[in-house]
Nucleic acid binder design. Structure first.
Ligand SMILES: [Mn+2]
Ligand SMILES: [Mn+2]
Ligand SMILES: [Zn+2]
Ligand SMILES: [Zn+2]
Lengths: 152, 152
DNA sequence: GTTGCAGTTGCAATGAGTTGCACAATAACA
DNA sequence: TGTTATTGTGCAACTCATTGCAACTGCAAC
């Protein structure tokens, strides 16, 4: 896989721990949490520490091989970037998540570059808001009554 | 101030703790951290707990009276929303932050609404990337050598 | 080979933020 | 006013993630 090559080319060691983390991210279909990665790594080799998993994830993130995204669950999720650029819309009411193409962010990216000379890292966004179904409901409700999830 | 009225109108109590937190956010000029708020609250009344500060901030956030933003410092910062909508570009290399007008995000907001029926909460974004000055530097460097901040 | 050294790991401690729970404060109602 | 229901707070325990440090690894120079 291309990640391992990139890692070595940049002068980082391809340790067993890093290989295991990479394998598991590759095998996982969608977004995966650090805890899930750690558990699967430990099935193969039980002595790998969670801090090593986090350090590996931070390294892969720095190299833009994976994305780190807060989907509003209280912990972050990771995903391979080589699997096509896309982003997500997360409904703050029902919690559902909808993917959308990177295409929709390209005009913004171009504008930030042109107006401010800023090259934005638009790897994998999670944009919060109200989905089509929840939008009418929220407008009506007096915000206090009938709150779906146990907030505040 | 309008925040206190909103709070009461929505049926929330205007407790001394909440008033102190609101006061401090109003008095602070830019973005402020929970820890800073807590310290200033304690100068007035030393028995307020940090969890009450966090709970108040989460409430104000839910009501869209303040924004909560990760500016890449390892903790989040809060800012009054009534002080004009804007966002920030944060350079991942030099750490500098540049404000930009909400105007630049409006086309995206419109597009998400039109294409996906999704009403995005674009309260106060921090978009990471490379600023004008750092952009040339990053392209050249082999990523490993001469890394400014003590990463990985 | 063995010495030197940068890179990496495990472990324990720490930091930021949240949560369960008992109690306090306030509102609602008689 | 007294009684009860609701909301909010303090505290301690907890979760997710990061960090300092000592020990270990792989590699190159001597
Ligand atoms: Mn995704
Ligand atoms: Mn701001
Ligand atoms: Zn929804
Ligand atoms: Zn910069």
């Amino acid at each position: 896989m291309s990640c391992t090559i990139t890692l070595q080319q940049k002068g980082y060691r391809l340790t067993p721990q890093r290989m295991m983390v990479l394998d598991i991210i590759h095998d996982s279909k969608g977004h995966i949490s650090a805890e899930e990665i750690h558990q699967r790594v430990r099935q193969r080799y039980p002595f790998v520490n969670i801090s090593t998993v986090y350090r590996t994830l931070n390294l892969l993130k720095k190299l833009h091989l994976i994305s780190e995204t807060d989907m509003g669950e209280g912990y972050v999720r990771y995903e391979l970037l080589e699997r096509g650029r896309h982003h997500h819309l997360v409904c703050r009411r029902c919690g559902q998540s909808f993917a959308f193409e990177h295409e929709s962010l390209k005009p913004l990216q171009a504008r930030l570059l042109k107006e401010y000379g800023f090259a934005a890292d638009l790897d994998h966004f999670a944009i919060f808001g109200l989905c089509q179904r929840c939008r009418p409901a929220e407008g009506k409700a007096g915000a206090r009554e009938e709150s779906q999830r146990g907030d505040d």
